[in-house]
Write a protein that binds this DNA or RNA. Sequence first.
DNA 1: CGGATCGTTGATCAACTTCAACGGTCGTGG
DNA 2: CCACGACCGTTGAAGTTGATCAACGATCCG
Lengths: 188, 188
Amino acid sequence: MQQLLKKMNSIVALNAEEETIVSGYWKEKTLKKGDFLLTNGAVCRTDNYVLQGSLKAYFIDPETGTEEIFYFAIEHWWATDIDSFQKQIPSRYNIQAIEDTKLLQITKESFEKMLLEVPRLERFFRIILESYLATLQRKIITNQIHDAKVRYLDFLKEYPLIAERFPNYLIASYLNISPEFLSRIRKK
Amino acid sequence: MQQLLKKMNSIVALNAEEETIVSGYWKEKTLKKGDFLLTNGAVCRTDNYVLQGSLKAYFIDPETGTEEIFYFAIEHWWATDIDSFQKQIPSRYNIQAIEDTKLLQITKESFEKMLLEVPRLERFFRIILESYLATLQRKIITNQIHDAKVRYLDFLKEYPLIAERFPNYLIASYLNISPEFLSRIRKK
DNA sequence: CGGATCGTTGATCAACTTCAACGGTCGTGG
DNA sequence: CCACGACCGTTGAAGTTGATCAACGATCCG
């Protein structure tokens, strides 16, 4: 919980009382490698903060059946379908643990209560959303502008740690390239 | 201004005093067709709410020089590079009026002051961000899953008004298709 | 009427996918 | 300690989607 409080404090500065309130709302949860946190069609009941481990968010191409990774979530980041969580509507995608993973979770009702008790956090979550948004925006732009090779090189530069942590076929999926083609790119 | 207040009230219910404060911060601005609201490399100084008209947000492919439309902004929506606005860093894209356009604008400093005076609005903007994010998410997913034909049909179903309001070459750019290929798709 | 602006059509071309096969490595059980 | 799969990356050949280039038409508007 300290990790999350620290992150919050880096943006909105909570006092001790607020920290206690907030801490009460989050529960720890463990996932084993391969466990699902969310599946397509289900409602995303909790907001999830990653303490340890990693997950992939992906959807299935209905024609080919292949998985298309949308984003990776690692330590200090979120693994939540925000749209599904906020509106409590079915999700369009899946979230699954790549490694053994430890999370902090909060349900939607608790989330709303927490915001009422600590309204300062509205600002925190607004700012978190902004960086999420910036990431998605960048993803769209680079996907459209650059060809597969440049996308891969960009990725290596931007996320060198992820690149070495995950197998290439996951990276390929994230970059929207077939594993075979990524392999050919890597030959240089 | 009434339009914007109404939108805010639909989410956070401001009282009369708050409405007056908020109203004081936003200024009206008019753009002629073709005018730029933001250009690549410049900092997005204002948050912009569209009262009337329409704009396109796009970036230029450095190799081919073609414009790739990222999103359209029409009445009741925003025409702001949020990442650039919030961090006051150079933008990666351009925003340009497609038609004569009327906006409400607020500078970053005013924006922050306004939030301090009316903290309730943190929630409003958080929720606005969430729908923005959901839109981007959907765009990424459909771009990856569907081929050009399905993307176009989806677009027609999702945004029939935009489809008839804008010329096809803009739609093509938004869908990440060449105008020629869109024309071939339309022959069916 | 003349020039933009936009859509269409045909021909060629490039990026990337798909399919199939193979090889290397690693962990597990006999 | 070896053998067997599972898992992952690589390679080759063929196939597709959609881009590009170039030309032509249609429409609109000053």
